[in-house]
Nucleic acid binder design. Structure first.
Length: 462
RNA sequence: GUGGUCGUAGCUCAGCUGGUUAGAGCGCUAGGUUGUGGCCCUAGAGGUCGCGGGUUCGAAUCCCGUCGGUCACCCCA
C-alpha cells in the first residue's frame, strides 16, 4: 500500500528544526512580553464572514486563497488565512479593557501554489494593539518586530513604510487615482486593464513593466494626506529617526489586506533569494473593528511568518539552538529493569537521561550512548547487580580538558564519600583514549545514594 | 490558476546513445572483543527505478498521461 504523505503545501517539522521553530516562538514571547503584550489563542477556523468582512471581499486572500467549507450544521466556516481578523473578533466578543495588547502564534492557511518560503499551512507570530490611535503605539509595534529580528541576529533587513490615509483623505485620493488610471488604462498590464476599478490601490503594487511605468506619474497618497494623517505619520517617522531604526518610504506599499489605514509597513530580508522575502508586515487598521460590527476601535499590529524567519536565519548562517540531548545514558544488560528504576530516579532528580531498550548487547547500547551525545554512561551488568553497584563510564572525546577536570571533581567527591571509587583504568599510551570507569554503591533507597550523589555533583560543576 | 524543471535505497547521487540478477558513499543492524562507545575491517537489511499506459524481442533509460517535489508568475508571512 502506498504511504500517505503530508498534503501539498504542508510540511512536517522534525527535530532539530521543530525545536528551532519553538525557540523562535519563545524568543518572540520574551520580546513582546517585555512590552506587556499577552497571549491570545483564538480558533483556527472562524465564521467565513470574519475574513470576508474583515480582510476584505475583494482581497486575493479571501477571493481565491481561502480554505472555506460548510460544516455538518450548515455553517459557513473558513480556516483562518491570517491572524488579525480573528484577534479583533475575539476582542469585540469579550470586550476587554483598552488598551488591549495581545500576541499570538499559530497556523494560517491559504490555498495557493507552494513555493520557496510559501506554504498552504504556515505559522505566524504577531501582536495586535487595540484602543489607542497614538502614533507612539505605531512606534512601539514596529520596534517590537525589529527588536525581535535584531535579537535573533538578523541583518540586511529593510523596513518599508507608507501611510494609506484615513476615511477623510483616502476616498478623495482613490478618486483622483481612479481618474488617472482611467485616462491611462490602455497602458496598464493586461490584468489590470480589466481590474483597476475593483481596487485602484492594488495597481500600485503591480510589478509588471506597464503598470510600473503608469504608476510613476500617478498621484501619490503622501501628497493627499489630511493634516491629521500627515501629523500621525510624521510623528512616527521622527520617533523612528530618533531611535535609529532605519526605514525606507515606499509610496507603493499598499498591501493586500483591505483593512489597513494610515501606517503600513513590511520588513524584507535582502539575503532571501526568492521573491518571498517579506518576513513580517502589518499596519494600522482603524476601521476593522467597525467593519466586523463592533464599536469603532483603532488598532495596529503585525504578523511574521516563522518559516521565512527560520529561512532568513539559515541564509545568514544563524544557527538557532535546538534542545540538547541528555548527557547521561543507561546501559543495562541484565534485562532492563534496573535501568527502568535508575532512570526514573534520575529524572525525578531533574537529570535528563536516556536508555536503551530491547535488551541489546552492551556494545550496541554503548554505541547508542555515544551517538546520543551523552558524556556519562551508567552500566549495569550481572556483576554490578550482584554487588549492588553501578559503573560510571565517562565518554570521550569532546572537550577533553574540560571533561577531565569534571572527572577529577566527581572522583574527589566519591573518595570523600568513602566509596571504592575508581576500580578500573586500562593501560594506554594515549591518555585521551584511556577509559575512566568508576563504581559506586547503589542502595535500594536511592535519592541520597552515592551513585546519584556523584552524578549530581558532576552536573553541579558542569 | 499559468509556466519551467526534476522524480532511482532513510539521505546525497551514479547508471553513457534501450541489452542479463539496479549500483556507490553516508546512515542503519550485527559480528570482529564469551561485559565496554568513537577509528578500522567484515557481513547484512533496505528499491514493484513516483504511478498508469504505450513503443520494443527487451524500458530506470524513449513517448503520452498522471501524481508529487521544486522554481517562477500572481499574491502574501
Amino acid at each position: 500500500m502506498e504511504l500517505f504523505r503530508s498534503p501539498s503545501g504542508t510540511r512536517d517539522w522534525l527535530p532539530p528544526d521543530s525545536e528551532r521553530m519553538a525557540y523562535l516562538i519563545s524568543a518572540f514571547a520574551a520580546q513582546v512580553e517585555l512590552a506587556n503584550y499577552r497571549l491570545v489563542l483564538s480558533p483556527m477556523f472562524e465564521d467565513s464572514g470574519v475574513f470576508v468582512r474583515g480582510v476584505g471581499d475583494e482581497s486575493e486572500v479571501v477571493t481565491k486563497e481561502m480554505y472555506d467549507f460548510t460544516d455538518k450544521g450548515g455553517r459557513s466556516l473558513a480556516l483562518r488565512p491570517e491572524g488579525t481578523a480573528s484577534v479583533v473578533r475575539a476582542f469585540l466578543q469579550h470586550n476587554p479593557p483598552v488598551p488591549f495588547k495581545a500576541w499570538y502564534v499559530g497556523p494560517s492557511f491559504r490555498y495557493e501554489r507552494p513555493q520557496a518560503g510559501r506554504y498552504r499551512q504556515h505559522h505566524q507570530v504577531g501582536i495586535e494593539a487595540l484602543g489607542p490611535k497614538d502614533p507612539y503605539l505605531d512606534f512601539e509595534v514596529i520596534s517590537m518586530l525589529m527588536n525581535w529580528f535584531f535579537s535573533l541576529g538578523l541583518r540586511d533587513l529593510v523596513l518599508k513604510l507608507n501611510s494609506l490615509g484615513d476615511d477623510n483623505c483616502r476616498p478623495p485620493y482613490v478618486r483622483e487615482l481612479s481618474s488617472y488610471l482611467e485616462k491611462n488604462q490602455n497602458l496598464l498590464c493586461v490584468e489590470h486593464q480589466q481590474r483597476w476599478q475593483v481596487n485602484p490601490l492594488r495597481v500600485l503594487d503591480c510589478k509588471k513593466e506597464e503598470c510600473i511605468a503608469v504608476k510613476e506619474n500617478a498621484p501619490k497618497i503622501k501628497n493627499s494626506l489630511c493634516p491629521e494623517c500627515s501629523m500621525h505619520f510624521e510623528t512616527l517617522l521622527s520617533c523612528l529617526d530618533e531611535h535609529k531604526i532605519d526605514y525606507v518610504l515606499d509610496d507603493y506599499l499598499v498591501r493586500g489586506l483591505d483593512y489597513y489605514t494610515r501606517t503600513t509597513f513590511e520588513v524584507a530580508c535582502a539575503s532571501l533569494e526568492s521573491s518571498q522575502n517579506a518576513i513580517g508586515g502589518g499596519g494600522r487598521y482603524d476601521n476593522l473593528a467597525k467593519a466586523l460590527g463592533g464599536n469603532d476601535t483603532p488598532g495596529i499590529g503585525f504578523a511574521s511568518g516563522l518559516e521565512r524567519v527560520l529561512l532568513a536565519c539559515e541564509t545568514q548562517g544563524i544557527l538557532l539552538p535546538a534542545v540538547p540531548s541528555p548527557k547521561v545514558f543507561l546501559a543495562d544488560i541484565t534485562g532492563g529493569g534496573k535501568a527502568a528504576h535508575m532512570i526514573h530516579v534520575l529524572r525525578t532528580l531533574g537529570i535528563a537521561c536516556d536508555r536503551a531498550f530491547d535488551n541489546r548487547s552492551l556494545k550496541s547500547q554503548l554505541r547508542q550512548a555515544d551517538k546520543s551525545g551523552a558524556i556519562l554512561a551508567i552500566v549495569v551488568g550481572e556483576k554490578e547487580k550482584e554487588a549492588n553497584c553501578v559503573q560510571l563510564k565517562w565518554l570521550f572525546p569532546g572537550d577533553k580538558d574540560r571533561f577531565i577536570q569534571l572527572l577529577t571533581v566527581a572522583a574527589d567527591s566519591s573518595r570523600d564519600a568513602g566509596t571504592n571509587g575508581r576500580i578500573f583504568s586500562p593501560e594506554s599510551d594515549e591518555p585521551e583514549k584511556r577509559d575512566i570507569i568508576e563504581r559506586y554503591r547503589l542502595s535500594d533507597v536511592l535519592p541520597e545514594d552515592l551513585a546519584y550523589s556523584a552524578i549530581k555533583e558532576f552536573f553541579r560543576n558542569a
